[in-house]
């Protein structure tokens, strides 16, 4: 694996994996919110978001509108960068390394190689080692997570089913990832080769999981979080932070709901507190039954 790190004459190395993963560590226990305008970004920051994801349409609207979903207009990303002091992330299409190059040139803090946008390559994800900016990628299972890590992702998130306000798919993905990690810690050294083959993942990463009992990078949850209790649920299932896409700005009172999800994420084991912040929040986003969907975004990527 080659790493696109850069050493300057001052003895400072930028773009190392430690530095990429380090920012993911700083976001733990936090809420990353999708925003489409500078005003929404400010609402998110005021509510305690640890970062914002700048995009042109939230997943619920992408789903409704159809067509090809692409990287956002740089002007819109720069506007959001100017509006807030917290990290700003942006999405590139799966395999679209030129969009990622543009996002790196804009100095976004994290790139999400995202199934929410229309994939640009049917066989290859972006070689993320070739970049100095860190990447987060979605995964539905452990094999997918480890393939993305082997390509250089410094953070993994569940895919869930974006734009539905329905948590069921994210729960499936988290349980699958965490469940297989548990099983791998019980496997003997010979069985690890079978796991690597079954998962389609590098043996080195499987051996590392057997030893540490965790993914080599932070595991966050995305896809379908709409309430404070949803955040509490996925954190109790082992997610270390949450992405909320359509769930905030498609609800009746985004500011209050955002704040409530932030507090529930911090105090996720305190049911009395989750009850308190859930009270009188107004309508959540309407949401969609998974069986009624014509397209499953989580099936994009491989």
């Amino acid at each position: 694996m080659t790493e696109q790190a850069r050493a300057s004459e001052t003895g400072r190395e930028t773009g190392t994996f430690t530095v990429k993963r380090g920012l993911a560590d700083m976001l733990r226990g936090g809420v990353i919110m999708d925003v489409v305008t500078s005003d929404e970004a400010k609402v998110a920051e005021d509510a305690g978001a640890v970062a914002v994801m700048a995009l042109e349409r939230v997943p619920a609207d992408i789903r409704r509108d159809g067509g090809v979903a692409r990287m956002s207009d740089p002007a819109m990303i720069e506007g959001i960068q100017a509006a807030v002091t917290i990290p700003v992330m942006a999405k590139a299409r799966i395999g679209h390394f030129a969009e990622a190059q543009v996002l790196q040139a804009l100095a976004v803090d994290y790139i999400d190689e995202s199934e929410v946008l229309t994939p640009a390559d049917e066989a290859h994800h972006i070689d993320k080692w070739a970049f100095e900016v860190p990447f987060v990628c979605g995964a539905t299972n452990l094999g997918e997570a480890l393939r993305r890590i082997s390509e250089g992702a410094a953070m993994i998130r569940s895919k869930g089913e974006a734009g539905t306000g329905n948590i069921v798919e994210a729960v499936r993905h988290l349980r699958s990832i965490r469940g297989d990690i548990k099983k791998i810690t019980q496997a003997d050294s010979a069985e690890l080769y079978g796991w690597a083959k079954a998962l389609g993942a590098p043996i080195g990463l499987v051996q590392e999981i057997a030893e540490t009992g965790e993914l080599p990078v932070p595991l966050f949850c995305a896809g379908g979080i709409a309430t404070p209790a949803d955040a509490s649920l996925v954190l109790q299932l082992g997610a270390e932070a949450v992405f909320v896409g359509s769930g905030i700005f498609k609800s009746e009172d985004p500011s209050r709901r955002a704040r409530a999800i932030v507090e529930a994420t911090t105090h996720f084991t305190d049911a009395a507190l989750v009850a308190k912040v859930s009270t009188g929040l107004g309508e959540a986003m309407r949401g969609e039954e998974i069986g009624a969907l014509t397209e499953r975004l989580a099936e994009r990527g491989w």
Partner: peptide, 28 residues
């Protein structure tokens, strides 16, 4: 942020993100 709270107990002035965005994060 103007409304940012701090305890003000350490005699230093700090600039938030004073080395720049994530691309400027470094090891040394």
């Amino acid at each position: 942020r103007p409304d940012q709270r701090a305890f003000g107990v350490l005699g230093v002035t700090v600039r938030r993100n004073g080395y720049g965005r994530q691309l400027a994060s470094f090891e040394t």
